[in-house]
Simulated assay, not measured.
Amino acid sequence: RNLENIQADKTPGFIPEVLKLLRVCASKLKGSREDERAGMTKAMLYALHLCECLFGPYQEVISAKEKSKYKFAPAPLPPEFGAFFQESFQGGEQLPETLQLRLIHLFGAILSGSKPNALRAITPTAVEVLLGVLRRGVPGLLELALRGVVAVVHVLHGSSPGAGPVPLRVLLDGYFRVLNSDLPVASLAPEAAGGLIALRVLMLDAIPAMLSCEDRPVLQAVFLSNNCFEHIIRLLQNSKVFNGSSDAIAVHAIGVLTAIMSNSPSAKEVFKERIGYAHLYEVLRSQGQPTQRLLQELLNMAVEGDHSSFPVLPIRNEQPLLILLAWLPTLACRELQVFLSSRLRRLCEASLPSRLTC
């Protein structure tokens, strides 16, 4: 509560002792019986909350402008934190989920607290911990870990080149490897396939969040250098619709392609050269008849926004419209044909520039 007692240039002397206590408790918890866990779990929760208050006192504040209104700086992060964070997620037996949640929450608090602390916390082992949580795909932990990864991307992107111990391209490479796990959805049992689809959808949705930052064109260029288009297309190829029950991955993948190419002529050219819209069309067609959601997402790609908004957005990328025109005669559902025809006409007639584009 009394943050004025914390020196901005010196880590409080009790913090290393608190981290030592946390490491001992975490080690004992992993090998303890169920009836022995309650006391140690409670002690760890209190200690983790103390660390959150010290290293991220204003973690609920998102923007730097709002954060500047507050006068208390976070305490400097001690070097012992990295080893503690790594050890907490190592080994075969995991800590109780409530503690794992608080640990990832603490990591996020550090990232939002101050840039020096964030750069100290973002180590190769910390990044591997977050990616490991994504691989496990535990609901609750997964969403929080994704928020952490997005925050790490923003910190690294906003820092001077070489300032952080982990290059942004290394993080993105690991992220896309998790996204493109080797097991294709169609080879799994229905329950496991559903979990994998949910994981991939959440990971896809995090990419536009990563790109929502200052100096977006530079970050788009980093994504391009990490072969992001190839990763997304490979994901589409490996994620054939399971029993025809879901188009979620295709819909969200198109949304990611739109986000990466949005307002970037160079990104659109790179996509044409490396992938090509004809190949995208073939990959989508191989998954069977499209749903209305998928058609709508391609319409959104054409205007780089909500195609159903009013006034109608101008056409910024005509290539998805050419895909839809080619697909129109082959649609088995007459209602979809009528829907798509009316939407195409609406976009093409909306303005003089759009008519000229068409």
Rank of each mutant, 00 (worst) to 15 (best):
L204C: 12
N263K: 14
A64D: 15
D205H: 09
H252Q: 14
S245M: 08
N2G: 05
S245W: 04
L324P: 07
K268T: 07
G31D: 12
I6R: 06
F107Q: 10
M203P: 01
G39N: 07
M301T: 13
D306K: 06
I315C: 00
S286D: 12
L211W: 07
T98Q: 15
A259W: 02
L202V: 05
K240H: 12
L19A: 03
L188V: 05
V24P: 00
H252N: 14
Y70S: 01
R102W: 01
I315T: 04
Q86T: 13
L21Y: 00
I207Y: 06
E36C: 03
E52S: 13
S354C: 05
T357P: 03
L352R: 08
N300I: 00
H252D: 14
C25M: 10
N317K: 10
L280E: 01
F310Q: 07
E349Y: 09
L144C: 02
A151K: 14
M203L: 03
S114K: 02
V155M: 03
E60Y: 09
S27Q: 14
A186E: 15
A259C: 01
L331E: 06
S264I: 06
F223V: 02
R234C: 10
L134E: 04
L131R: 06
R33N: 13
R334A: 12
V270K: 12
A151D: 11
S286L: 08
N300W: 05
L340Q: 07
G162K: 01
G194C: 00
H252F: 10
P96V: 00
S160I: 10
P217M: 07
I315M: 05
M44P: 03
P79V: 10
L19R: 02
E52N: 09
S286E: 12
Q94A: 10
E297Q: 14
H154K: 15
S32D: 12
K30E: 03
Q237K: 10
V18M: 11
G148T: 11
E214L: 09
A192T: 04
R120K: 15
L99Q: 08
A302K: 07
S246Q: 08
Q289W: 03
R37S: 14
L172T: 07
A326P: 04
L196P: 08
L171P: 01
G255N: 00
E318S: 13
L294W: 05
P190S: 12
F84I: 01
L130P: 10
A121W: 01
L340T: 02
A193F: 00
P76A: 15
R274E: 14
L235R: 06
G148H: 10
I122M: 00
P314V: 02
R355Y: 07
Y70V: 05
L45H: 09
L211K: 04
E282L: 08
F72I: 05
T258I: 04
G276P: 02
L257G: 11
C333T: 13
A259Y: 06
F229R: 00
V283T: 11
M301S: 14
G195S: 12
E269P: 00
K69F: 04
F14Y: 13
A38N: 10
R285Q: 15
L352V: 13
P76R: 15
T125H: 11
L99C: 07
V270F: 07
R355G: 00
C53F: 04
A47H: 14
E36F: 01
D306W: 03
